[in-house]
Each structure stands twice: as C-alpha cells, then as structure tokens.
Design a protein around this nucleic acid. Structure first.
Length: 311
DNA sequence: CACACGTCCTGGTAGC
DNA sequence: TGCTACCAGGACGTGT
C-alpha cells in the first residue's frame, strides 16, 4: 500500500515526465475512479482536455498535478488534477504508441509533450484510489502547499489534511501536541491524517515499536517526551523507507503489493506476529485496533494503560 | 464535539 | 478440484 515514501517516489518520478505536457484525450475506463468528480466522467474529461500539466505536488499520501493554460474553451488556472492511490493505485507511462490498457487500468490520459505522444495510465486493482479535477484553495498558514509546490495553495479536498511527517515546514511543536491530544488510542491518532499526515497502518506499527509505545495507549497519556520520541521515530522510519524506496523500484512502477519496495523493507513489527522482537526476543503480538490489524511487542511496548493496567 | 465503526472493492488464500 | 467465506487496506460518512 502506498504510504508517504511510495507516493513521494511516484511524485518525483512523474514530475519530470509529465510537467509541460498537454492533455488531448481522456478515457475513463471505470466510472468509480472519478467518483469525487461531481459532474462524473464527462466533466472530468472536459475539465482536463486541453490543459497543460505543471508541477506535481504531494502532501502526505495526497498527490496532485497543477493545471496550466486553457482547457477546452476554459481556463484551467486555479485547478488541480488530484490523485489518491488508495491501496493499490499506480501510474504507468508509455512513450509513442500505447498498448491496450491493462485490466486494472481505470483511466488513461493521452498527452503530448514536445510533439511526442505520451500516455499516462492510472491503474488500481482494489479501486480505493481516485482522480478528480478540483479548485485550489489557500493554505491555512500561508505556507507552501506541499512537497514540490511552488505556491501556498492546496486542492480543496486536501485542505483539511495536516502537513506530513517529512515536511520541513511542519510545526513540530504542534505535531507533538496533536499526538498527545484526545482519549483515542495513539495508533488511531497516528492514522488520522488531520493530526499529522503520511502515516499508514504499517508505518504506524513501525513507529510505535521503534518508540517503544503501546498502540493502545491513550493519546493524552503520552508525556511530552514520548510524543517527541514517537514523532522522531515516525520521521526516521519514513525517511529510511523513502531512501530505500527511491532506489529499489522504478518510480512509476509501484507494484500492487508494493513488491518492488515493500517486501524488501525491513519491518520490525508489522506482519511479524509470533516472531521474536528484535529488541528483546519476546513474541510479537497481533490484534485489531480501530478496525486495523496491529502488531506490537508486549514486553518493550509494555503498558497500554499506565498506572492502572499492565498489558 | 469527539470518537467508533461501517462502507467502498478486489483478489489472494484458508478452509471445507 | 471447486467452491465459499474471509481478510487486507485509506479515507470518509454516519451513528453514538
């Protein structure tokens, strides 16, 4: 599942490829992939046709292409092509003549770049991903919209998403406080993209293991030191994955199971149920927290309810 | 207001 | 062998 490191790798791969290209045809092969487009597939195609693609920007797991120039009889300035990869989304590109679309291809953009044909396919086996064209709105703090952004604007659907773990302009104090606010389990807060973004189920478990914090700890039971440690752990785990992801797979080919970068990752908690903890040798436990599978070491991530309960 | 939980969907796999 | 039931995951809408 693409989390921040994968999405950033995709963004970095897409930008030099499509920046400056013009859309001349749009084919939606599965309507639900544009379900967030109010006017449906026809509006999506209409909005995009004739537009030029500019910078490719990312915040957390959200990705968007800034639109430039004029679409079919209308200006596309102030609009973005937003993309979310969901669990299995990926982009694939073809120069020259494009092959028959893959079974999982949900939409195809026919582009022209420097007079050459370029095809950009959006594939998504499990269909949680989506594309839509939407207006840009100002960021709340006037800061840059995200990684790769030249301006303080965000797609409307991303406006409520917090700055991500690796965003150098993120307010660290604020992020630390967000992590120790509320009665929820800390794991739930890590997955809440409005608190801090970019963390998915796998890296949430990894960050908690690394920081030696139980996933069921109440967020507001964390000390200032613990939330700082957790944020540092999340950042470290994500940046290590990014460094690895950037070199271990083709930027535009993130496999459905993330096979090219995913399984080669060094995971200490996620998926290691019954295996010995790398720190203390205790068997890693597995359970469901907030409807998500969770993995933790009962020894070194010990206490889920400090002062009352020992897990 | 804060939070829990069901929902969307597909394909791989465990189990019969 | 072939079938079914179940599970995984991100984000959001709805219910408490």
């Amino acid at each position: 599942m693409p989390e921040l490191p994968e999405v950033e790798t995709v963004r970095a791969g897409l930008e030099p490829l499509v920046s400056g290209a013009t859309v001349h045809a749009v084919t939606v092969l599965r309507d639900s992939c544009v379900r967030h487009q109010e006017g449906g597939p026809s509006e999506f195609a209409m909005a995009l046709t004739g537009a030029s693609l500019g910078a490719v920007v990312r915040r957390g797991k959200f990705l968007w292409f800034l639109l430039e120039g004029d679409g079919a009889g209308h200006s596309t300035r102030g609009l973005a092509l937003s993309a979310h990869l969901g669990m299995s989304g990926q982009f694939r590109s073809f120069e020259g003549e494009a092959p028959t679309p893959h079974t999982h291809c949900r939409a195809r953009l026919a582009l022209t770049r420097e007079g050459e044909a370029l095809t950009l396919d959006f594939l998504d086996q499990r269909t949680f991903g989506y594309l839509h064209v939407e207006p840009l709105v100002p960021t709340a703090d006037g800061g840059p919209g995200g990684q790769g952004s030249p301006m303080p604007l965000l797609p409307r659907s991303v406006a409520h998403i917090a700055r991500d773990v690796l965003d150098p302009t993120a307010d660290v104090t604020r992020a630390r406080e967000a992590l120790r606010t509320g009665a929820r389990a800390i794991k739930g807060v890590l997955l809440d993209q409005t608190a801090i973004s970019g963390i998915g189920n796998i890296y949430a478990d990894e960050a908690l293991w690394s920081a030696a914090i139980h996933p069921l700890r109440r967020a507001d039971s964390l000390t200032v030191e613990e939330s700082a440690r957790l944020l540092d752990s999340a950042r470290e785990v994500m940046s290590r994955a990014l460094a690895q992801g950037g070199t271990s797979f083709d930027a535009l080919y993130v496999n459905v199971n993330g096979e090219s970068g995913y399984f080669s990752r060094h995971l200490a908690a996620y998926g290691r149920f019954g295996e010995p903890c790398f720190r203390c040798g205790t068997m890693i436990l597995k359970g469901t927290i907030g409807g998500r599978s969770s993995h933790w070491c009962p020894q070194c991530q010990g206490v889920s309810h400090p002062g009352t309960d020992r897990d």
